[in-house]
């Protein structure tokens, strides 16, 4: 049984993960809740971690695997109201996850569990030549700009600048973040990094980002992008395979 203070914040986590995955197996143990899975095409990986400290209340015996249909969970979470607390309660007897919104009253959905097991995927140990921290909404806006021009985007680090660029048949777009840019928090690089990515996936991954959030990007040349940010007490990590010439 786990209680989160803001159902509405957690809704954004579920919304974002559901953009990429159809189902997920949550592992709940005394450290908190984690989950990791690749999308069916193996282009993207999502890793979710909600430390025990993020919960207002957390009770567990042993370790539980909770298979969830994300489309159904998302629909339920969309019913969260701004002052609702969220209680997630595993009913092993009925094989359901109770999703409870608590405010002046108590509204309870019982979500049927899926018979899926947790993936054994570990994050690959990739050494990245460049790490960029920047304001999440600035990154998201640059991706939305690029989306007007093409269906892919190139993310580059060169000369202590982070560049988002794309070329369409007729029109081009680029956004540069250098040390003078208030959106750029830090940039560490050993040489250049340049990789191309599908924009639809990237836009799905940044869906939950709002003003004030900070994203951390790990980049290389023709390497997967690693993207990290925190949302509603959850740490989200994404990997996205590049497009290669």
């Amino acid at each position: 049984r786990a209680t989160l203070e803001s159902a509405k914040e957690f809704k954004k986590v579920v919304d974002t993960v559901a953009q990429i995955l159809d189902e997920i197996c949550l592992i709940a143990n005394e450290d908190g809740i984690t989950a990791r899975a690749m999308d069916p095409s193996h282009v993207a990986l999502v890793s979710l971690e909600i430390p025990r400290l993020s919960f207002e209340d957390y009770e567990i015996e042993g370790e539980k695997e909770i298979g969830i249909d994300l489309e159904a969970f998302k629909k339920i979470m969309n019913r969260a109201k701004s002052k609702d607390k969220l209680i997630l309660e595993l009913d092993e007897e009925k094989n359901k996850l109770n999703v409870i919104f608590e405010n002046s009253g108590r509204r309870k959905f019982s979500l049927a569990l899926l018979d899926i097991s947790a993936s054994e995927i570990k994050m690959p140990e990739i050494e990245y030549p460049a790490v960029v921290m920047l304001k999440g909404d600035a990154f998201k806006e640059a991706l939305k700009d690029a989306d007007l021009i093409s269906d892919y985007v190139i993310l580059k680090v060169e000369d202590n600048k982070f560049i988002v660029e794309t070329k369409g048949e007729l029109n081009d777009f680029s956004a540069e973040f250098d040390e003078d840019s208030s959106a750029l928090i830090s940039i560490e690089s050993q040489g250049h990094a340049k990789s191309a990515f599908n924009l639809e996936y990237l836009l799905d991954m940044v869906k939950g980002i709002k003003a004030g959030d900070i994203v951390k990007l790990y980049l290389g040349t023709d390497m997967p992008l690693k993207l990290e940010y925190s949302l509603g007490g959850a740490n989200l990590t994404f990997l996205l395979a590049p497009r290669i010439e």
Binding site: S41, H42, P124, A241, P242, R243, E245
Partner: peptide
């Protein structure tokens, strides 16, 4: 704009 590859090859290394 290139060809989309998968993550699989990065897990093998």
């Amino acid at each position: 704009d290139g060809k989309q590859i998968t993550l699989d090859s990065f897990f093998k290394t």
